[in-house]
Design a protein around this nucleic acid. Structure first.
Lengths: 220, 220
DNA sequence: GATAGTTTCATACAAGTGTTTGAATTGCAA
DNA sequence: TTGCAATTCAAACACTTGTATGAAACTATC
């Protein structure tokens, strides 16, 4: 087994570079330079570049999902099997938002890497990603228990919109800051979480009447 | 000037391929094969690959923005300088959603290309993209006129969330279909537009009291 | 129909990619 | 220390990328 030092140095360097610059333009040579190891080390320890990426993604994927599920489980147990919708949504988007936003120095490389992965979708990751659906289904289930009177379609749309707001805010955080001339404070993570959860909750609990077909406004 | 046939064949082929497979793995050789022209034609007509991408993006960018602004202008004139917030939001997200969703055969390559561009952010595009902010600012202005009692920060967040829901829904449409087992009908574009507009409107018009700090729910 | 300018083409080039190789070095057990 | 496996390393490999070249084909004007 030996030191494993090289192995983890590669993992750390690769994750950092991918998180910062995306998969598109990070080469093996960039990674080994950052890690301070020899070029051949990647193929020796991981077999191929794709397997390195896959290992990175799988590791982080189960971590993130575990964290989200832990929050969800705790909430549902507190409520005797039924958690308030706000808390469910918070468990869904909170961990990722907290990892990717906030003061620069405390942003987690892991979370930023996962966002990259959710954006760029390079082949080795795309193959794995289908399992994510099973994970989301657990949240959909919890949401249905929290809002039993709500139609399934509305639940899925609410879930979709919650993820949309969280991910987009992270991905376009720079643009939002520039657009608002700094007025939107993305370092106040808990405020961002609260905003996303609040809007998603409204989407899910708004007046039943307009559920299937929200009020159409005449175009133009 | 001659035929220009080769030029436009390249543009069309490139747009189609980029829209389908992303910038990451579409080579010049793929493009010329699809266009049925010689490899050197790209450099002859456009100078370089990056300039080809840039031209594609600039063309589509002004088209999309013009379409959105046309809807916005018309709405504001109808209302004597102040349009209902729903109509503004519809002008913002409608064109893109209509171009990217709906029955497969009527999805516009142009819109799908723009979504790719908004996701992958390859260098030649990134350089141009900053002008997008000026465009969004016009919508922010219209929204502020529609909701003068609302704080600027809330306006920007609402704008951000509206774009978030629209783009994310397009990008992850496949996953949403699979997750909901087809229950969410993404071919019914007008329903999708209505849902996005409805939620964004709620986000922007929800009870004033909880504006700055939406109700916090105890975590876990 | 000859000629000049434009456009196409096959081909070559330089640079960069992930991967492989085989020799050197290391670390550890006998 | 000796011996052997695990690891590191420099170098080369095979391949793909975008771009450049110079000859060929075409087009239109005189």
């Amino acid at each position: 087994m030996a030191s494993d030092h090289t192995r983890s140095a590669i993992l750390a360097a690769a994750e950092r570079l991918y998180a910062d610059r995306g998969f598109g333009d990070v080469t093996l040579r960039d990674i080994v330079a950052e890690a301070g190891v020899n070029l051949a080390a990647v193929n020796y320890h991981f077999g191929s570049k794709d397997e390195l990426i896959a290992e990175l993604f799988v590791t982080r994927s189960v971590q993130t999902n575990r964290e989200r599920l832990r929050e969800l489980k705790a909430a549902e147990e507190d409520g005797g099997g039924r958690a308030p919708i706000e808390v469910i949504l918070r468990a869904l988007v909170g961990p990722t938002l907290r990892g990717c936003l906030g003061p620069e120095n405390q942003r987690s490389t892991a979370a930023r890497f996962m966002i990259r992965a959710s954006i760029e979708s390079v082949p080795p990751i795309r193959r794995i990603k289908n399992r994510e659906i099973d994970h989301l289904r657990k949240f959909a289930g919890a949401m249905r228990r929290a809002l039993p009177e709500r139609s399934e379609v509305d639940i899925y749309w609410g879930l979709n919109f919650a993820l949309a707001m969280a991910h987009h805010t992270i991905r376009e955080s720079e643009r939002l800051t520039k657009l608002s001339e700094g007025k939107c404070d993305l370092d106040d993570v808990e405020d961002v979480v609260a905003r996303v959860v609040s809007v998603a909750t409204m989407a899910l609990t708004a007046g039943r009447a307009e559920t299937k077909a929200p009020p159409r406004v005449a175009a133009r």
